[in-house]
Design a protein around this nucleic acid. Structure first.
Length: 935
DNA sequence: TGGAGATGGATTTTT
DNA sequence: TCCATCTCCA
């Protein structure tokens, strides 16, 4: 906790700083400066406060004038325009600490919004280092988590049950597939995926179905709109919201109910938004509802005058806007000053992260984008090393080079594995790196890719839980209806569906009327009856307040899901079992920690935990609070006065905002009271409430409501709470902690994932036109510019060493592809790059021997395409003769180069050979297909 | 109903 | 190439 961090942006930065201390003596001046100042700052966290002046000085230590200006700013909305590595997040965290520590703002009235859960967790940690446990009362979360919390307490206004399902992308897609099928939309013209994207855009731009109707002009749009309407209706019927709904609905809620908006405007007196360049229109509107001068602002709200707008600070860098494809619009940054009258802009131009060479390269690239405001990022870290360039023969050669370079640097003691990251444009590119890294024994970790919660078995299990918690959730019910196989097939499903439509009930309810459904085979009916009996049993379990893990184990065992996997011979199913065991462990952990443990190892939970007690609190609390960790004891007494069949609502109904209906069980007794007392242990000034400033709205904000905030610490281990967490937390395994003595692991990730992180040494691979920039972006200028911003993000992740590489030949979709160098390479001034290997060296190496056998492999269309790009004619022999090989023969492979045959197997068409290609490793090749020549 | 074979599509990604 | 989804038939 006392560990300083060069930049507060990421966890990786913290790790890297640590390693920098031990491993690297050539620390740049900027870093040293930063560090000493932060070292002076953080030790205070655990001790009683020193005198106030000192404290304020510490808070501002190490900040440049612009950063100070931002931290100290009062009043008007502020846009902090910050370049990469200029300490934006640092400004935000210091500002929060300043607000709480100096301006006596109650942490409960602070809302900080970040882009990811991870960023939220880190911001909480950093703020906590600065102001101690008071930080727990802030709302630090993503837009989505914040909206869920608001909706939970207000959704009754929409006549929706409090227990709603949150549909992620895959659920939404499934629903849209059903919709498109039922509307008989031609899948060629209306691919569900495309329709869904269209709908998503509408929601992100707050175009609802009604206003969309007036815009529709083409038959194509008519189809889309029809699908949108139907899709939305089914969501509502299923008591479900998709991710876009979470925000859109919250905005609609505030627009429709001024008193609700007022309630939150009074609560949140300080709103801070990170990564503002990645917000979309709906998110912008939400901020405006909370902080803007809303025209129809209700002076007529009964209980007093409308709240003045909160103090708003947004932070962003338009050059790092890389999510336009998801609806983010930099308009929000560009128009900030007109959107929020009186707004001020603060520029942060000093970069504290990278050397000048790295910055020069990044600046040169990004300056090619049109219509951007020039920023002059500068660094006093010195020129540093030149960038290193490398042209590889193939993607394996590229990976080989990267691995070799990392090893060399580590051997020289210059870096640790954890200081290194390898970036690529698409996930598929990770394979080559992984193959090579595994072979040479380089410790690495891939971030992203297939996620835990996207695996089939996990989704099945979650679908079971959701169907139990919300039987209207058609998508989930139908997903598990015949999983494991029960003999309820499409036919039966269709019959139930027809019945449900006819009687206007949900699919789940229709299942309970098996006897009345026409056209059901007796066998199917029987199976359905036993299925519903099983589901009813589970529902009863939930109604009896069974904790989430118990429900989960019951489901997995009694549904026969586990049995099916056990019986399977498919080796994949073994992994599935392990994953389910993991899920159960996650649920156990969740329950054991009173519903506050982050899911999995990495990310901290979003919505639920941002205000609730975090694990650290549980461990720091005095023994009297043990009830917090013994949810079974406290759970019943927290049940509200309402008898509600929905299990999910205990937290929200009794917690944060249920002002009117919940004067019920006292929140000031039990764990809550103890919690709020112990929260402030660090500052030694008694209850935190003593420090609350009595401001203009203080009467709205003191006492009870804050305690309600603290009341979130009440354990909620119910199924609903668990499901919510699962829906909102993206992933369990994330950026590795490289704390270990071993030096950690090399991090592999896509450029998008890299946003917000930084590493001493960065390898950026696949710099080829068609790869990066991506094929699809080559045509459109706007898309190309987004790719360029992505390049800018990638380049600016590097602190000291930056490697750029490309491959001459890269196999894509099975066929080798020859890509020209990325245009971004040409945009970097030549004198900044030290080329270790150029194309000249490569072509001369290949040309002598490669042509003769490469033409041999004219086999299929893919190869023909490839041939054309390399410039061969098309009249080449169709059949390739299969070379006869034996152990010891020397061969030449078009991709792997020279090799020697170790062993052969098979014969004729099926002949295979194991060939040792030295640095490229041993490959088993089919002689019929491999571009192989006997020497 | 469910398995086997055909077909077609294949960024980036958080929540 | 590799995967997920679709179609057809037993």
């Amino acid at each position: 906790m006392s560990s300083a961090s060069a930049s507060e942006e990421t966890g990786s930065s913290e790790r890297s700083v640590r390693s920098r201390r031990s491993a690297d003596s050539s620390r740049d001046d900027g870093a040293r400066h930063r560090q000493s100042s932060d070292d002076a700052l953080f030790p205070e966290a655990g001790r009683p406060a020193r005198d106030k002046k000192q404290r304020k000085q510490d808070l501002l230590a190490g900040l440049n004038p612009q950063q100070r200006q931002a931290v100290l700013h009062t009043g008007a909305p502020v846009l902090v325009v910050a370049g990469a590595g200029s300490g934006k997040t640092r400004v935000l965290t210091r500002r929060i600490a300043y607000l709480v520590g100096e301006r006596k703002v109650h942490p409960g009235s602070i809302l900080a919004i970040t882009f990811t859960n991870k960023a939220a967790a880190e911001m909480r940690d950093r703020v906590q280092e600065l102001i101690g446990n008071r930080a727990k009362l802030m709302w630090v979360s993503t837009f989505h988590s914040a909206c869920v919390r608001i909706l939970r307490s207000e959704i009754g206004r929409f006549n929706m049950a409090r227990t709603f399902s949150i549909y992620d992308d895959a659920d939404a897609k499934r629903l849209m597939q059903l919709v498109c099928r039922d509307l008989s939309l031609d899948p060629k013209r209306f691919p569900p995926r495309a329709v869904l994207n269209w709908v998503s855009n509408c929601k992100n731009e707050l175009v609802d179905t009604d206003s969309a109707s007036s815009k529709v002009s083409t038959p194509l749009e008519e189809g889309y709109l029809a699908a949108y309407k139907e899709y939305q209706q089914r969501l509502i019927a299923a008591n479900a919201l998709d991710f876009d709904d979470l925000i859109m609905t919250t905005v609609h809620l505030m627009q429709a109910f001024p008193e609700v908006r007022e309630q939150y405007r009074r609560r949140f007196r300080h709103v801070l938004v990170d990564e503002y360049q990645d917000t979309n229109i709906a998110q912008y509107e939400l901020i405006r509802q909370l902080c803007g001068h809303v025209e129809d602002s209700p002076a007529q709200v009964e209980d007093g005058p409308a709240a003045a707008p909160a103090e708003l600070m947004v932070v962003g860098d338009s050059d790092q806007s890389i999510y336009a494809f998801r609806g983010a619009t930099i308009r929000n940054i560009l128009d900030f000053e007109s959107d929020f009258p009186g707004a001020e802009t603060i520029l942060l131009e000093q970069n504290y992260r990278s050397t000048q060479n790295v910055l020069d390269a990044a600046n040169a690239v990004i300056s090619r984008n049109q219509g951007r405001t020039e920023k002059r990022l500068w660094s006093d870290a010195g020129a540093g090393d030149k960038l290193v360039g490398y042209v590889a023969d193939s993607e394996h050669d590229e990976a080989q080079f990267v691995a070799g370079e990392i090893d060399a640097l580590v051997d020289q003691g210059k870096i640790k594995y954890g200081d290194v990251a390898v970036f690529y444009r698409t996930n598929a590119q990770s394979r080559a790196f992984e193959e090579v890294f595994v072979r040479v024994g380089l410790p690495y970790k891939v971030v992203g890719g297939v996620r835990f919660y996207e695996r089939r078995e996990i989704r099945d299990a979650i679908a079971y839980l959701r169907a139990i918690a919300n039987r209207s959730d058609d998508v989930s019910v139908r997903r598990i209806l015949n999983v494991p196989k029960r003999g309820i097939g499409d036919r039966a499903e269709a019959a139930v569906e027809a019945y449900a439509a006819e009687h206007r009930i949900s699919f789940g309810d229709a299942l309970r009327h098996v006897d009345e459904i026409a056209g059901l085979a007796t066998r199917s009916a029987k199976q359905i009856a036993s299925f519903t009996a099983f589901m009813d049993k589970c529902e009863r379990l939930v109604a009896d307040n069974a904790p989430a893990d118990e429900v989960l184990t019951t489901v997995l065992q009694d549904s026969g899901y586990l049995a099916e996997l056990h019986a399977s011979t498919d080796p994949q199913d073994e992994t599935r079992l392990e994953n389910l065991v993991e899920l159960v462990a996650v649920a156990r952990e969740f329950v054991a920690a009173g519903g506050t443990t982050p899911l999995g190892s990495g990310g901290e939970g979003g919505g639920l935990s941002s205000l609730s007690t975090e694990p650290i609190l549980a461990t720091e609390l005095p023994p009297t609070v043990e009830t917090v960790q013994a949810p079974q004891d406290t759970e019943p007494q927290h049940r509200g006065p309402r008898v509600d069949p929905a299990p999910a609502d205990s937290l929200f109904a009794e917690g944060l905002f249920a002002l009117e209906e919940n004067s019920g069980p006292s929140t000031s007794s039990g764990p809550v009271g103890v919690g709020s007392e112990s929260v402030d242990a660090g500052s030694g000034s008694g209850s935190i409430l003593d420090e609350v400033q009595v401001g203009p709205e203080a009467d709205q904000l003191t006492g009870a409501e804050f305690e309600l905030g603290a009341g979130a610490a009440q354990p909620d281990v119910s199924l609903g709470a668990f499901l919510e967490r699962v829906a909102l937390v993206a992933d369990a395994d994330q950026i590795p902690d490289s704390d270990g003595e071993s030096g950690g692991m090399v991090t592999l990730m896509t450029l998008h994932t890299a946003k917000g992180l930084e590493f001493d040494t960065v390898f950026l691979g696949g710099l080829e036109d068609g790869i990066f920039p991506h094929q699809r972006a080559l045509g459109e200028r706007a898309e190309l510019e987004e790719e360029r911003r992505l390049a800018y993000v990638g380049l600016t992740r590097a602190r000291k060493r930056l490697y750029l590489s490309r491959a001459i030949v890269r196999s894509a979709w099975g066929a080798p592809q020859h890509n020209p160098p990325s245009r971004f390479l040409a945009e970097i001034p030549v004198d900044l790059i030290d080329w270790r290997r150029t194309e000249g060296a490569v072509t001369s190496w290949r040309s002598s021997s490669a042509t003769s056998y490469e033409r041999e492999r004219a086999k299929d269309e893919a190869t023909a395409r490839w041939r054309n790009t390399v410039g061969f004619g098309s009249s080449l022999p169709k059949k390739k003769e299969i070379p006869s090989l034996q152990a010891g023969d020397r061969v030449l492979h078009s991709v792997f180069g020279m090799g020697s045959v170790i062993a052969t197997s098979g014969a004729g068409e099926n002949a295979k050979a194991d060939v040792d290609f030295g640095s490229s490793g041993v490959k088993r090749l089919s002689l019929r297909h491999a571009p192989l020549e006997k020497l």
